[in-house]
């Protein structure tokens, strides 16, 4: 498998802010790669480094084996779907989509045919002559996607493309994007702050915080075996047990993560007091105070729900307690 994008100790510094701090990563050709993190974590800057809108302060960005540090955006084999779509307001949908082809010298009839074909693929056939201002948010999103894909990029960059859509449309677009990526085989690099989106769509996820990659793994690994407290909390809303508690349980003084749904109530085990409970439909979430730590427990439907203030005992499979090798501060 060829490497589509490689970051080699890339940093991007704005003033005294290290937006991207010595990031090294590989994106494989044909994979759906997600960059996940809270706002300001450096994920969007990484995307802009691939697109060529930013230059690294230090380190190298390679695209298909070519050092791209000094290659301008218009000569890179990548295309971007922008967060605000950035559709050209003075052009109709067809001319928006055909813009890249026009620039590369494709004739009018040919590029209009290609534009209509790809618009058909994103279910926007018959909208060619409309102006972007006459479309709904979801339709604009599809036009932006078509405009990028029509150029047959080797890497498609997506900057929070679903952020502006409502929940139902977002879920629909998630599965459509995933299907489209499978069908075309194009490498997707997808930036999002929504961990559900990243986990459900991506083959691999890079979790960003403070300009650094916290962990780069498949969704299942991130979820069940987080390496740092940040990943445990941000990706899976997992419980992070402090070293002193883990020391009492296992004898090793390290941080450990414990998934809320892995915990059950029993007669023996860790003692705690129920602080609050909330009904979530299929589950009920308990917050249980155990010494100075609050542990979140997800009880399945049908389980006995204790009252707030009740003393409970928490137990779990020893295998579910995941000791974190990462930061132990």
């Amino acid at each position: 498998m060829e490497t589509a994008v490689r970051f080699d100790a890339v940093s991007r510094i704005f003033g005294d802010v290290r937006a991207v701090d010595s990031v090294t990563l590989d994106v494989h050709e044909g994979e759906f790669f997600a960059m996940l993190g809270p706002s300001g974590s450096g994920k969007t800057t990484c995307l802009r480094l691939i697109a060529g809108f930013e230059r690294p302060t230090s380190g190298d960005v390679n695209i298909f084996g070519q050092n791209s540090t000094n290659i301008p955006p218009y000569r890179r084999p990548v295309n971007t779907v922008f967060q605000d779509y950035a559709l050209f307001p003075h052009l109709n949908v067809q001319d928006n989509v055909a813009y890249g082809l026009k620039i590369s010298g494709v004739g009018k009839a040919e590029r209009h045919r290609a534009a209509d074909e790809i618009l058909e693929m994103v279910a926007l056939g018959g909208h060619s002559k409309r102006k972007p201002s006459e479309l709904s948010g979801g339709q604009r999103q599809r036009v932006a996607l078509a405009r990028a894909l029509v150029n047959k990029p080797r890497v498609l960059l997506l900057d929070e493309p679903l952020g502006a859509l409502d929940l139902k449309l977002r879920e629909q677009m998630q599965s459509e994007l995933k299907a489209l990526q499978r069908q075309l085989g194009v490498t997707f690099v997808f930036v999002t702050h929504d961990q559900g989106e990243a986990l459900s769509m991506a083959d691999r996820v890079a979790v960003f915080n403070d300009g650094k990659i916290q962990q780069l793994d498949a969704p299942q690994v991130l979820y069940y075996k987080p390496q740092t407290a940040f990943v445990a909390d941000f990706v899976g809303s997992s419980n992070v047990l402090p070293p002193d508690m883990v020391a009492r349980l296992t004898g090793r003084s390290v941080q450990a993560s414990l998934r809320p749904e892995a915990i059950s109530l029993s007669d023996t085990g860790l003692e705690g007091v129920v602080a609050e409970h909330s009904f979530l439909g299929a589950n009920t979430r308990l917050k249980v105070d155990v010494s100075r730590t609050q542990i979140s427990v997800l009880l399945p439907k049908g389980a006995q729900i204790p009252n707030d203030g009740d003393h409970v005992n928490l137990s779990w499979d020893a295998a579910d307690l995941h000791v974190m090798a990462g930061d132990n501060e």
Binding site: P73, Y74, F82, D84, A86, P89, G100, A148
Partner: peptide, 17 residues
């Protein structure tokens, strides 16, 4: 919107184009 310029560059247009 400033991203129009970036979108154009991204689609292969030079600064002059």
């Amino acid at each position: 919107s400033g991203s129009l310029v970036e979108a154009s560059l991204d689609l292969g247009a030079t600064y002059f184009q």
